[in-house]
Nucleic acid binder design. Sequence first.
DNA 1: TATGAATGAGGGTTCATTCAT
DNA 2: AATGAATGAACCCTCATTCAT
Lengths: 202, 202, 202, 202
Amino acid sequence: MPIVSEEYKEEKKEQILDSAFECFAKKGFQTATMDDIVAHSGMSKGAIYNYFSSKEEIYLDLLTRATDKNFVQYNKHFAKHRTASSKMDYLFNAYLSANPIDRNRLEYIVVFYEFNLHSTRDPDLLKQLHDRKRKLVSLVNDIIQEGQEQGEFKQDLASELYAERFWTIIDGVNLHAVYDDFPYYDVLRELKDMYLQELKSE
Amino acid sequence: MPIVSEEYKEEKKEQILDSAFECFAKKGFQTATMDDIVAHSGMSKGAIYNYFSSKEEIYLDLLTRATDKNFVQYNKHFAKHRTASSKMDYLFNAYLSANPIDRNRLEYIVVFYEFNLHSTRDPDLLKQLHDRKRKLVSLVNDIIQEGQEQGEFKQDLASELYAERFWTIIDGVNLHAVYDDFPYYDVLRELKDMYLQELKSE
Amino acid sequence: MPIVSEEYKEEKKEQILDSAFECFAKKGFQTATMDDIVAHSGMSKGAIYNYFSSKEEIYLDLLTRATDKNFVQYNKHFAKHRTASSKMDYLFNAYLSANPIDRNRLEYIVVFYEFNLHSTRDPDLLKQLHDRKRKLVSLVNDIIQEGQEQGEFKQDLASELYAERFWTIIDGVNLHAVYDDFPYYDVLRELKDMYLQELKSE
Amino acid sequence: MPIVSEEYKEEKKEQILDSAFECFAKKGFQTATMDDIVAHSGMSKGAIYNYFSSKEEIYLDLLTRATDKNFVQYNKHFAKHRTASSKMDYLFNAYLSANPIDRNRLEYIVVFYEFNLHSTRDPDLLKQLHDRKRKLVSLVNDIIQEGQEQGEFKQDLASELYAERFWTIIDGVNLHAVYDDFPYYDVLRELKDMYLQELKSE
DNA sequence: TATGAATGAGGGTTCATTCAT
DNA sequence: AATGAATGAACCCTCATTCAT
């Protein structure tokens, strides 16, 4: 079988990551075992270790990819939007349109935030976390500044601080999504209105 | 025929919980071992198992107590405040006055949110989490309704939804506190202003 | 059972070391598994790890103890001997009287020399090996110099070099003891005669 | 209908053995992995298994060849020497002229003696070891007997025992060569003198 | 109550060998 | 003949929990 295409290998990696994600989602990173991933993926243990050198690496790759995918998606969409307002709208809507009680989404949220908290204890991971956070804040900050330049948004607003506020809100809402009676949509929409109202010039 | 008093036992339990908290904070629940707790507490393993029947129980007790302490504290303080406004103020200030870069506080945040996410996977724990959440929402909801009745706050506001929004904001801010460059104070204050402005009658 | 005397613990350690030795003897350090040692000792795996933190540590302790025991034995016996000659005699006889086809002795030899060769690849172990070697050479060197001072031995002899020669011979003979048809006794006796003859003043 | 010539195959085998030796030298037989050999040789895993059926077989072949090469070399050289004395001289000099601190030589020594000790535990290997030893002893025994017949050496000397003594010395010296401060040359020369002096007729 | 030695299932990882291509 | 991905038994070690003292 050997001498196999890069795509084949990439596909295998994805397969492993998919299985790993489900296992981490179901049990958490620490509690999920390599045997779980083996069982779920249907591969052999050795095969998995051919693609990833440790359970931790799988975890990292999983989260890095998710993050990267997000960024790519954002940037792709932003290209289609002309105004800063519509970009902000798009960002909010990305979360507003997410089905809050979708099993997969909840699992993703739990795994994702667990990873963030976990990273808190490892300087290397914390560094990555910071970088990612900075990029996210920049993403929004850029939009706000663009809006300010275009006269869409208030001029006298600390744009970076306001960008931070955006992610604070998003993370707050996401976190509460794990409560199945959380009025996700309503709360987020009101927060969106509140946020945009203050942002936009009267 | 208990040989030792209840107070003695309670004291011992607190001692264990303190040590356990530090261990969980430093390494996380899964990674911290009973041996860590033994070493930190200076007690013997058997002694600890006399007071708690498992590591999980320690974890649970720890978080339950923290939550309870919070409630007691809130209620104690609310008794001193006359108006709903001042109660809301107190709540926000409880978080505004917290030193966001205090090591202990950060550790507490991490352990606390990890526990929440962890609880997601266990129906019993999730139930507890829900109850706690409901109580927190009620706490704020009661204040808002009180304020509405007193004419302090807008009448046409969905009070419970607004209460949910409060905790969403708080959790968002708390979560971001783990980033050492997060402008915790500024973001929270602005969110507070935004929140209260909309709440109060013009 | 806990709170146990130091002797008890030392005894346990010895027990483990005994089992480990037999396993290493039978299969070699790398090939012998912790499960082998567990099975042979009749203890649980955890128990063994309570006394030694790794398989390597067991190996090291085993060899260190053997070496130390040897030194103690030598020094104890030297105290009884008055002349340098009789000390040299004692040393040679220690090896001459060893039963060359004794199973235990052969196993010991194999394990011991394997350890030496193994140590070659680890700077720390190599250092220990060197130290041990230096002590052994000193031991003989001291005797030779004592003999020279007393007029028993030739004056114009490089004592340290001659001490090195002693251990070279011993190790050579030991190594050959693994061949069951090796005329251990005869070869060693002749080498002894040859060695002492050149050492002693005419 | 072999596609490739025997020479080609032999060449490949040598290539593998060379790589294997370096790996075994660097890490030891047990610790060196097939992947190490693969990496070092630049061949594929499958290719190596086409030439050798197991790691053990590589090890065996390696050592057998080394031994055989030695014998061929000895016999080739002996053909050039007329007297038994000069043959003994040659043998000693083969070791005296070896650079005792040559990295390669030390590695060879370690691998070689490790193999001997390893063989101790496998009846088949032990048999091979014995045969080799017997051949080595015969080699020297023949020389001594030749010398005795020619009147070069003492008549009343147990030639085989004396041959055994030769290899005992050589192995002792070799073994000590792993200590970088071992006065290899001096010790061996003195042992040689001692050995030959007793061998030769006065 | 307190002690800490003992237990042993189970964890992550390795690696000689196989075999489809 | 050559490739290297796949296999899975086996390895060393951990650790929550138990229990004799």
